[in-house]
Nucleic acid binder design. Structure first.
Lengths: 339, 339
DNA sequence: TTGAAAGCGCTAACAT
DNA sequence: ATGTTAGCGCTTTCAA
């Protein structure tokens, strides 16, 4: 049995409240007693029971990070791994523990209710944004501290971090147009996610501003799985040959390249991915990709949450994380002319 | 303020002990009262306070997963990501939460002491094995439930899961020898990790069994970072041209290929990686790699730990997870002859 | 079948 | 500057 505060109090000949006070660094404690208490703690290698502390405090120094349901998106694709890394780093540095979890049967609401109701965590970070998210509604209603990675529809009552998805896709699309592309396909994730809609809007706006008509056959959505992207690409190739494809995940982009290669179009079609994963550097042709700095998204999400938990007012309710286009061979005009 | 047991007891006109009993599914409770209590719970949308429960129970239904210190190995390389995924999946399915953390200043002992002392978790999973690991020693001394991913030196007092690292490297090395390789380089992680030594032993045994002398210049160790592997390769190339390189992580293998390419040796040297990551499929030449099934390692680690926590005797104290060699272009003789 | 009461280990208001 | 005491919300022994 590990030592308790009581044991320490006995040994140091003080009351438990005194022990509690030295632990808390309370000022009104004489140097001598503080020393005695510390010695007693050391002698017994005392460690405070955080559970007891939590019960008394109503605080756990633990935050929860909710991943998407693995049935909706592969558990921990590169984006989420980076985000976790960022969250973990900030949390650890600030003395918070990280509870990593995901919903079952896509039921995020039940998970959040459980997390909040059980009082295991002080706050939660959500990693997806959908319309009328019941989990988010619940968090807002309960006034439970939370941060969303992604731009929530109701951005008044929640803290959030995101890239400017519309702008970055606008930029990429415009760039391709400048290179002479006119038939630009757009492959993205499920349209229940706001990130999908934002990016698509950036794409549409760019086409519009350059007077390029929208061809619905060039717009596809799927889960972030390579084979699905290959499938979609073959589908598109049945009706026309696009001169560029923007895919909102490198995994998708790789699937696109694979399908293009089947028809020997790999050098005729510019391809751009997202998330700048390792594969982007290694596929041939090297894949142009949008670096969204997912690690920073996670880091700032944790920062926003933890600052809020500690009552620190950052005078800011969201962070917009820089994203930038990394051009590689797969979308460079010269590469395409090579053939 | 969320409802407490007391509120439920009031509403149902019973004592808190009765509420506690229905919650626990205690048999000696009349059907009527049980019903009344359940209704009261529903009416108040009562959720038990897990912290209070934990304090009373001395149990948290949370397990900790310790990652390596990011200063020693990049935080969450592919191996660990897969392992996390496996642990998380099993834990979630069995109603356990996952606390993800890592030591600071490489001080795993302090972290483990804190984790155990604070009673935040019911058990911990370690992901690295070093000699005389103080963290492991502490866990054994405290008799605190734990599982190690990797084969611990003291395998009597801990549960563990691992691949048969020696055997798989023996197999890969022998294969390369059969293909005619005689100068096989071996690049691996830090030799403080047992996995490094085991794999190296497999390599040495294979050489020995085929009467090939060991050339120490061909054996290098480094952190799992691409550039370091490239560096090591250049170092080796100064003194001799190996006909094969075994690298115990795909990241290293990629660095090797990069260095080989600088000297236009990429088609003359067989290269084998480990962990069968995505890049292995996409680099050119496609990288042969050992699939160690890290996700299964994590899954079975969690299974071992949780079964132990629940007092279920699996009649087994470790799992040996299958690993197998996936041969691709980078090590195939024909590919090498191409040039 | 149910309730009363003690206890899990800590914190904090109140008292001295 | 320190001790006393009453919780925090639950479980569980003991008694009825």
């Amino acid at each position: 049995m590990p030592a308790t505060m009581k044991d320490v109090a006995h040994l140091a000949n003080v009351s438990t409240s005194t022990v509690s006070r030295v632990l808390a660094g309370h000022p009104a404690i004489s140097a001598e007693t503080a020393l005695r208490v510390r010695e007693a703690m050391a002698a017994l290698s005392y460690q405070p029971n955080q559970i007891a502390r939590s019960l008394s405090n109503q605080t756990t120094r633990t935050i929860a990070l909710l991943m998407p349901d693995p049935s909706a998106s592969p558990l921990m694709n590169a984006f989420f791994v980076s985000a976790i890394r960022g969250v973990m780093t900030y949390a650890r540095k600030n003395g918070y523990y990280l509870l990593l979890t995901y919903p079952e049967n896509n039921d995020t609401e039940t998970l959040v209710r459980d997390l909040v109701g059980s009082r295991r965590t002080d706050g939660v970070i959500l990693t997806t944004v959908i319309k009328d998210d019941p989990a988010l509604t619940f968090l807002i209603a309960q006034n439970h501290p939370h941060v969303v990675i992604g731009h929530p529809y109701d951005d008044q009552n929640t803290l959030w971090v995101d890239n400017d998805n519309q702008a970055i896709v606008y930029e990429v699309t415009s760039r391709l147009i400048q290179q002479g592309c006119r038939n630009i396909a757009f492959l993205s994730g499920a349209d229940e996610f706001r990130v999908t809609l934002d990016r698509q809007q950036g794409y549409l706006n760019a086409l519009h501003d350059h007077d390029i008509p929208v061809n619905p056959d060039l717009i596809h959505r799927s889960r972030f799985i390579e084979t699905l992207a290959a499938e979609a690409t073959r589908e598109i190739l049945k009706t026309c040959l696009p001169d560029a494809v923007i895919a909102t995940d490198d995994t998708l982009a790789v699937g696109v390249e694979k399908a293009l290669r089947e028809f020997h179009y790999e050098h005729n079609v510019a391809v751009v991915g997202f998330n700048n994963t390792l594969v982007a550097q290694f596929v041939r042709p090297a894949l142009s990709s949008v670096e969204i700095n997912a690690e920073q998204l996670g880091y700032y999400a944790a920062k926003l949450l933890i600052s809020h938990l500690e009552g620190i007012d950052l005078h800011i309710r969201h962070y917009l994380i820089d994203a930038h286009f990394i051009e590689r061979e797969s979308s460079r005009p010269k590469a395409k002319r090579k053939k």
